[in-house]
Design a protein around this nucleic acid. Sequence first.
RNA 1: AGCCCGCUAGCUCAACGGUUAGAGCGCCGCUCUUAUAAGGCGUCGGUUCCGGGUUCGAAUCCCGGGCGGGCUACCA
Length: 1152
Amino acid sequence: MPFKPVSSKTNFPELERDILRWWKETDAFNKLRKLRAGGKTWSFVDGPITANNPMGVHHAWGRTYKDIFQRYRAMQGFDERWQNGFDCQGLWVEVNVEKDLGFKSKRDIEAYGLAPFVVLCKQRVLNYSAVQTEQSVRLGYWMDWNDTNTLRMLSEKLGENPNQMLTVQGPQGPVTGTVEQIVGQLGLPQLGGSYYTFSDENNYQIWGFIKKCADNGWLYKGTDVMPWCARCGTGVSEHEISTEDYPDLTHTSITARFPLRGRANEYLLVWTTTPWTLTSNVAVAVGPELTYVKVKQGDDVYYLSEGTVKMLKGAYEILGRLKGAEMEGWTYNGPFDELPAQQTVGGYAPAELRNHIGNAQTSAVQAHRVILWKDVGDAEGTGLVHIAPGCGAEDFHLGKEFGLPVVAPIDENGTFIENFSAFSGMSAFEVAPKVIESLTQKNYLYRADDYSHRYPTCWRCKTELLFRLVDEWFISMGETYDKPRAQLKQAEKARSLRYQIMDVVDQIKWVPQFGYDREMDWLRLMHDWMISKKRYWGLALPIWECVECGHFNVIGSRDELQARAVEGWNKFDGHTPHRPFIDEVKIKCEKCGGKVTRIKDVGNPWLDAGIVTMSTMGYRTDRAYWEKWYPADFITESFPGQFRNWFYSVLAMGTAVTGQPPFKALMGYGTLFAEDGRPMHKSLGNAIEFNEAADNIGADVMRWMFARTRYETNMLFGYHVADETRRMFLLPLWNVYSFFVTYANLDKWTPDRRPPTADRNQLDRWILARLQSLIAEMTPLLDGYDSPSAARAVEPFIDDLSNWYLRRSRRRFWKSEDDGDKQAAYATLYEVLVTLTKLLAPFIPFVAEAMYQNLVRSVDANAPESVHHTNWPSVDEAKFDKQLLADMAIARSVVNLGHSIRAAKAIKVRQPLGRAIVVADAAQRESLTHLRDLAADELNVHAVEYAAREEELVSYQLRPNFATLNEKVKVLVPEPETDDKQIKKDAREKRKAVMGGLTTALNAADASQVAATVRAGSSFTLDVNGLAIEIAPADVLVTPQPKPGFAVASEGTLVVALDTNLTAELVAEGLAREFVRRVQDLRKSANYDIADHIRVFYTATPKLASAIETWREYISGETLADEMQASAAPAGAASVEDGFDGEKLTVALVKK
RNA sequence: AGCCCGCUAGCUCAACGGUUAGAGCGCCGCUCUUAUAAGGCGUCGGUUCCGGGUUCGAAUCCCGGGCGGGCUACCA
């Protein structure tokens, strides 16, 4: 047996585990790398996955694309880097470690100790990178994976003692160092494997980038009021907050009344949704152009904007109107003037921020007044805006503009600092009731209501953000110029990184196209990049800020740091550049010579991910290697968030450092949802874990689902879709393969028996032509990163192969004589299947490998060892017979029409008919001529003929082709060049009459005659409302209409009729086929092998018995019956009784 | 709040301003089959989101509105 038997029922997940084992045993991946080494390069850069949790099915989506395109390029002979990446540093890891330890705040971390805390962060990353590595391998994702035992060993030893010495084997030899040092080198050339963004190289490379920014004058320390997470104790930059982080939340909104100084019983009505900020009120803003009203309620007089009077409680009387500008400078008593902080001259803030609140000469209490602000609206509230420069971003900027003091009430935990009396020590989240109570007591409260609005939350821990005064580090994105980009001068661009990135973005292919617009949108609007985080685990920002002179020293490399170190180098040396050890190093200030300490902040994690196109390709260490692989040819990641995150940081850093695009093409994909259209959530019960999906669905089915989905839209993932995918795609493919192996083994067919293509029949040449068209279609699609279109091209091919080629060819494989035709059938099906394994290898690597091993390797030891080592198929023009493809399309239409007539007339296919009559144009006749026998057989008719007198079968319907006639009518009835309504109306009427007249005139014409004229390619003249219009063949649509009462069906210009006259001979033939059918059913239900010969016993009513006698030879041939007797069966025979067409039958079989 | 995309059969989606708005899936009926939980044929299924307009002619173009998704901004 040349091939290993293949069951039509197979367990795909089990098959995949077998293949995984075999890939490992044969080292298939590394052999591929060696095969392609030195070839032309194709550079893929992996966007790092956060190694913080097991990977989900949504990760498998993107990783499927990454694998598809890397495998595809490898099959085209390209050399690749095959490096996966893990994102390691940052708050997401810290938060999980805190959770594991049960920590509540940053103080807990400091008490625990930074050094052991950082070790735990590293360990978590190592452990989950091992988990994700194993899951990726299970997906069939080929990369230069680390040995996961080594990763877990490193994690364990790091936990024991990071300073113990260790030697591990690298690709270029053994590497020795402390465990901490070894871990710091993961992914670098000496150790290989996935890159880790916590590696020394990655960190020092970012130092170089930040130094470059500082040299360009782009790095600055800024004071601002920014969103702050009180739980994490750090500022949150706008890069990090996305639309989903603004849920609808309900807070208490307060309308307070501020008594005007010098106007007895008159009050400003001021509205806020953040009660805690009232403690820090400094001013009230009004819109200068807005209209305000002075209203009276009881003894009190209020000011508010005219558009908001509906918020007043109860009856009121309008005393007057005024513009906001008229209120400028009015002074008032603030709601919390009794607080010492309010009374402090120059404002008030936490100690570490005192230097950052400016130098106002008054206290908040003294400063209380009405200021003008053009952005004040009156859609809600009162049209008078409470201004607290220490608690709001806009407020802060207004404060600067107007020289107002700043009152900043909370510390990094969101707790009120001292000098806020009873509020001191309270959390900003819990003071609202106390604020209301105090206002009520002082008679300042006008109303308090529940108010629902969108409010920002922390993207990591979902805590509500507070607006807080901070000092953070920024990279300036440069000015936004108020003119089109094309008009910018070179010098203007040189000053603005923003525009330099835009120029780079222009050079990149964005798939889908709208990605370009979104990135541009972000670049146009983005603010400066806040790169600092007041946390512990992450990039140590290389900024040493001098407390003496205020100068900040930026260090660009480890060597530079060593050269400038004046203290603590020995405590740091031998460690990775992380806290706490890096903080030991003090340097000499380059300006004043003072001893300087590093700022405490760590870096934004998108710095870590953004630098990888340089750090992983040896930008600093091996420039030749970097030149070879930079820029990347391709990256692909999920859209949400990445325009402001990874795409952005890679672009920004690539542009700043090299001025070149960091990648040439980007493919983005959407968001994965559960089958019910909702996000996957454990609590909703619709989540599917990756491991569970791999076990139940199998990786190949999952991959095909990902490959064929429209990447630019969201995807619905679930077991029903998966099941349908297996049923509609993978099973038919597998069954064709199983069919081939079963019969090829029976016939002991081997691939060396291949008749020349020219000697094969039409069906063979057709499926081979179809195969060429598939290759021709898929290749450019994959070149353009269009995975769904490429995958969707395969599906109809599988259908053609299974339900047309194979169904029509089956008999050729069964027949007993081993002739050239049978060889042709085997050779053809074999070629198609082997080519398919290659075309499908990037998509479904397991099934493709299983088929390839059995079909190719089992018979040819010289063939490439794995399907993934083979070359991508190219089109064989000699086999690409386009005429044959067109011919078959016509033949299949004829067959479809014939089947449809049979159904309509209730004549089953098993009943042979005399002839099918076809009405067709010349080209269709030409096509059909070659395939008449095939059509006749499929339709079960004795002959396919062409109609002698078409008029007997069809009448013709004529319709004008408006698409072409439109132009002619425009010339005959031109659009008048006048404004005269009457003339225009007349023209319109006339055109309408002509257009309508065309239909009328054609209906009146002799349809048969016009049809004949048009078919002959001649024109004729039609009189339409007195206009003589020349009608070309293209101007008229001729549709044949089957005449009622005949067995006729039509599709476009093709018409098929069936001769339904049933002669006695035809009836007998039909009965014989019914008999065969019963015997075959019986063979199957008795579990006979397809090759078993049998003896048949039967009793039948006379008409049937006579038919059986007449067709004895045919029946014997079809059923492998060596004997056929009209007698009772011997005991034990398989038998069945049945009745059909008015006849009765008992039939029994015995295996011979 | 602004912008972008979408809204067509139960579901997923087609249809250069052109004629009778089509496929696939699902349902149901019939049928074919010694590879197939398969295949073939057919029935049922439509206010093309709503309302105006332009046009001889609108699912398609324009205006207004509704719903869904996305992006961006976030404000008292």
